[in-house]
């Protein structure tokens, strides 16, 4: 059922023995994996298992307590501040709570970072934003403030904001968990569209159907590590791990 994707051999992200603890509490222990260009990786697992922490560590929102994160040939855990500031914009992130800038209009939310980084001029950015908002049907909202939008609209703007930086990979941290049910669809279709366009993505989600249909690869995270790593068919139809089986049972019973 999953889409045939063109996945090149180029490695975008390589994670090596990543560890993360908060004080004495260990969340991730020796996690290792690679992400190739064009892959769409769904990350599933029970609540509180460290899925969010995993992807928040990848763009250094949480500082890793051990291991390495390679972005192409640069080790983020060893890079200088200056190098990091060049790499982070290449790793986009979409948050559960949208985190649009409350004091800026929709348009400024999208254009601010690329203009500050010199990726686009102000005019180019405005035109680009207008075009994108038009595509997602939010052109009318361009000059409104985030408080005037619905949750679904906010999240779609947040996705466009991330895309404006022209990232090589986008991390989604439960992008639909804070939405009312009727808004989940509009956000997921945009995510799906993005996936189909060949964007490399990692997606923490509780939408099992979506994970199965849209992803090229699935991680099951449990007990501080990735317990199962395979295609959607392998993970959902033929789970080997006992905990994964239990987890899938519980999810489908809901």
């Amino acid at each position: 059922m999953s889409v045939n994707r063109e996945i090149s051999g180029e490695i975008v992200l390589k994670v090596d023995n990543l560890c993360k603890s908060f004080g004495k509490h260990e969340i991730l222990s020796n996690v290792s994996f690679t992400v190739k260009k064009g892959e769409v990786i769904a990350i599933i697992g029970p609540s509180g298992c460290g899925k969010s922490t995993l992807i928040r560590t990848l763009n250094l929102l949480e500082a890793p307590t051990g291991g390495h994160i390679w972005f192409h040939d640069k080790d983020l855990t060893q890079a200088s501040r200056k190098e990091i500031s060049k790499i982070i914009p290449k790793i986009g992130m979409v948050f559960q709570q949208f985190n649009l800038f409350n004091n800026l209009t929709v348009r400024r939310n999208i254009t601010m970072a690329p203009v500050l980084h010199g990726i686009m001029s102000k005019e180019e950015a405005d035109d680009w934003a207008t075009g994108m908002l038009d595509r997602i049907g939010l052109r009318e909202q361009a000059d409104k403030y985030p408080s005037q939008l619905s949750g679904g609209q906010k999240q779609r703007v947040a996705i466009v904001r991330t895309m404006a930086m022209n990232p090589e990979i986008i991390l989604f941290d439960e992008p639909t968990s804070a939405l009312d049910p009727e808004m989940v669809y509009e956000v997921l279709s945009l995510v799906r569209e993005l996936a189909d366009s060949g964007m490399t993505m990692m997606l923490v989600t509780h939408e099992m159907k979506f994970a199965r249909n849209a992803s090229s690869r699935v991680f099951f995270v449990h007990d501080r590590n990735i317990q199962e790593d395979g295609t959607p068919e392998q993970v959902f139809d033929n789970p080997r791990n006992q905990r994964l089986r239990e987890f899938l049972m519980r999810v489908s019973c809901k």
């Binding site: 763009n59 929102l61 500031s85 060049k86 982070i88 914009p89 790793i91 986009g92 992130m93 948050f95 709570q97 985190n99 649009l100 800038f101 409350n102 601010m112 970072a113 980084h117 947040a158 904001r161 991330t162 930086m165």
Partner: peptide, 10 residues
Amino acid sequence: GQFEAGKSLG
């Protein structure tokens, strides 16, 4: 979250 969003945009 406002700070984190800014951070994630570099």
